[in-house]
Design a protein around this nucleic acid. Structure first.
Length: 712
DNA sequence: CCAGTGTGGTAG
DNA sequence: ATCGCTACCACACTGG
């Protein structure tokens, strides 16, 4: 499969634009090979930026022939800027420094007339005007002047406004049927019509031959719409967002009082919610039956669909979450299957948190149906706490369980023991007693693998774990995990209470598809990666996260892949991952990244793909491969400089880019200056600040302004 | 020792 | 068919 890819790469028919461009270039070279023709542009340093017509290389040679110098990135002494497309930030840089901005036509006309035409005739006034429009409407810093005139732009703007209104209308109706029939996901070609950013089609991006039949588009979006695990993670993020926007206003816990925590969890949330959605007659009919939620399946006895949630009647009959429907109906033939209603779950979840807001001002959301609350001293009676349960039941008809404890683990275990519809208080002594006889996997953070590992150490029950040798635990599980295991067996906290107001910025963002993935051709793999990236792009933009690293993880079928395999599932897999730092145009980074994973795998073994983005973090960038050998020394010098300016500027946290810039101008040694510029640009990229990185002029950064991806 | 990269585990 | 997502932590390993 890898060979096929290489063939495609070198196949000129697959890359006709490149071929054409090369031919054109040869021709231009021949025309321009003659010697210097005039001193027209003597003493001028002209910066060429972005895609130009005529091409940048043609302009460079033309300017050279007439005595001028050309650069492609901003350096001091630039006298003219030539471009067709310009971002707001770039415009600001050049207008601030009073450097004239001109269309390429200026060069041609100067040469034709053999004189320097007054720059005022050519300065890109309309760019400024359009950028004003764009800032008012807050659309995108990227604006394709060459392709759009003002009225076209406004027309597109109108379309997207209409689109928004429609979406809002649909959202406000809250009707599942309407949503599924009206809100069909857009396909890629529709997207590119809608987006003011678009210019390149996905096909062009991956260089895929148009004759090859494309797989169905938007598989990722469609898939996620019905994936319970996807929805579950989104619900949690929605709950967090809700609490940030609508902060808890309940009693403020006092520092002096002994802290108490409750853990509250809606009993079999999906199951209760789906039941509520049934008509009353159906509810009466099913009263007392074992119930479970799963996808709408036709042949239950043969299905590997997962039981997503089941009621406690079903659990007593041996059904549990995550079980296959076929196994469940075998154990429990009376099991009644309910359907998902994700929109309803989400709505209930937010209402649940809305109720919790009034009971404490310190809430730590764990998932869509589960949270910790720190209690203030006013809750002295258990009855006070049970009011929370009553309120949720009376307003949402959902039964909950509350665990009360001196720390999170105690509260958590109390809930687990009290389920369903219960209440329990645990302190350290009671905890250690009641938990003794449970299997180790009763405790949180002990899953399948750790249980197996503990079995090998002859540790089966929590009591065994309580008495285990800490040295041995640390040896087998690592310093942290080993200590945590012992702690939680003894009811000692290892989880920090973090109320929503302490919520840190998300550190990573991931989009996955590890179901129903079978790939034979590299082009199909790339199409899937493209769709995942598009989704990643969308989410990072929506959540205003700036990403500076990208990862692709591929699930590759292991030798025992087919063991326990769910139909269409990924089976037992090994994971293969590659990561890249986004330091130049995202398209190029992505291509490098894809090639790097593709080289590690066989297409026919692929069972799933994840793409992950990392939110920018300023770490030590010094050792980065991009920065060359002597970067360390240069950085030390740089930091001294920074410290000096920090002192004079009264301890600013971050020195502004302009300060750096002016300091750089004063450095005589060009090598040092360039290295420092590179280092600081890289630091800016790490912070996800493309504009600053650009100002310092790291190679390739200017191209990133034209990216259709919005990661930085 | 440091920092970056890759792997693996867990939860709901 | 059926919808095995995703955030975050810890750690081993590598190369200086």
């Amino acid at each position: 499969a890898a060979n096929k890819y290489e063939q495609r790469q070198s196949d000129p028919r697959g890359n006709s634009y490149g071929e054409y461009r090369n031919m054109k270039q040869d021709k231009l070279d021949q025309q321009l090979s003659s010697a210097k023709q005039s001193e027209l542009f003597k003493d001028l340093l002209i910066m060429l930026n972005g895609r130009l017509e005529p091409s940048a290389s043609y302009l460079r040679q033309l300017i050279g022939q007439h005595g001028g110098q050309v650069v492609f990135q901003y350096t001091s002494g630039v006298t003219h800027m030539i471009c067709q497309n310009l971002s707001a930030s770039k415009f600001n840089i050049f207008s601030k420094r009073k450097i004239p901005i001109m269309y390429p036509k200026w060069v041609l006309m100067c040469v034709e007339q053999q004189k320097l035409i007054d720059t005022n005739d050519f300065i890109i006034q309309e760019i400024a005007e359009k950028l004003d429009i764009q800032q008012q409407t807050q659309i995108s810093p990227i604006f394709q002047i060459s392709q759009l005139n003002q009225s076209q732009f406004l027309e597109q703007q109108k379309q997207t406004e209409e689109e928004k209104q429609v979406l809002q209308l649909i959202e406000s109706t809250q009707t599942t049927a309407l949503v599924s029939s009206v809100l069909q996901p857009l396909n890629i070609s529709q997207l590119s019509q809608l987006s003011p950013l678009s210019g390149t089609s996905p096909q062009a991006f991956y260089n895929v031959n148009r004759q090859v039949p494309q797989p169905q588009e938007n598989t990722v979006q469609r898939y996620h719409e019905s994936s319970r695990l996807h929805q579950l993670t989104q619900f949690k993020l929605n709950a967090q967002e809700f609490l940030i926007k609508n902060p808890p206003y309940g009693p403020k816990p006092t520092d002096t009082a002994r802290p108490l925590f409750i853990h509250i969890d809606i009993d079999c949330f999906f199951c209760q919610a789906s039941f509520l959605k049934l008509p009353t007659s159906k509810q009466q009919q099913l009263h007392g039956y074992p119930l479970a939620v799963s996808s709408n399946i036709k042949n239950a006895s043969n299905s590997t669909a997962d039981i997503s949630s089941c009621n406690y009647t079903a659990r007593r009959l041996g059904v549990h979450n995550g079980m296959w429907v076929s196994q469940a109906v075998q154990k429990c033939p009376n099991l009644q299957l309910l359907e998902y209603d994700f929109d309803f779950y989400n709505k209930l979840s937010l209402q649940f948190y809305d109720i919790l807001r009034q009971f404490s001002s310190d809430i730590m959301p764990i998932s869509c149906d589960e949270a910790y609350l720190k209690l203030s001293g006013i809750y002295t009676q258990q009855e006070d706490i049970k009011i929370i349960k009553q309120k949720i039941y009376s307003q949402l008809q959902l039964s909950t369980t509350i665990g009360l404890g001196e720390n999170l683990i105690q509260a958590r275990i109390a809930t687990k023991l009290a389920k369903p519809n219960g209440f329990m208080f645990l302190n350290k002594e009671v905890f250690q007693q009641v938990i003794k006889d449970k299997q180790v996997d009763f405790l949180p953070q002990i899953g399948f693998k750790i249980t197996e590992e503990l079995k090998n150490m002859n540790i089966f029950t929590v009591e065994d774990l309580q008495n285990a040798d800490i040295k041995l635990l640390r040896e087998n599980f690592g310093e942290v995990k080993g200590q945590n295991l012992l702690n939680e067996a003894n009811g000692v906290d290892f989880l920090l209470f973090q109320p929503i107001q302490n919520l840190l910025k998300q550190k990573s963002l991931q989009v996955s598809k590890n179901f129903n993935v079978r790939i034979s051709q590299i082009s199909v793999f790339k199409q899937l990666v493209f769709e995942l990236l598009q989704e990643l792009n969308q989410r990072s933009t929506d959540r205003q996260l700036k990403l500076n690293k990208l990862s692709i993880t591929v699930n590759v079928a292991a030798a025992n892949n087919k063991q326990f395999m769910k139909k269409m599932g990924c089976g037992v897999c090994n994971q293969v991952r590659s990561t890249i730092f986004i330091h130049k145009k995202c398209d190029q980074c992505v291509e490098e990244l894809v090639d790097s994973v593709v080289n590690k795998i066989k297409m026919e073994d692929v069972r799933g793909v994840d793409v992950m983005g990392f939110v920018g973090e300023v770490k030590n960038i010094v050792q980065s491969k991009e920065l060359g050998q002597n970067a360390q020394k240069k950085v030390e010098f740089w930091e001294k400089l920074q410290q000096q300016s920090q002192n004079t500027a009264e301890k600013q946290e971050i020195i502004s880019c302009d300060d750096y810039f002016d300091a750089l101008q004063q450095i005589d040694d060009q090598d040092v200056a360039n290295a420092l510029r590179k280092v600081f640009s890289a630091q800016c990229l790490c912070r996800g600040n493309l504009e600053e990185a650009f100002k310092l002029g790291i190679d390739g950064v200017e191209d990133m302004f034209e990216d259709k991806w919005r990661w930085l």
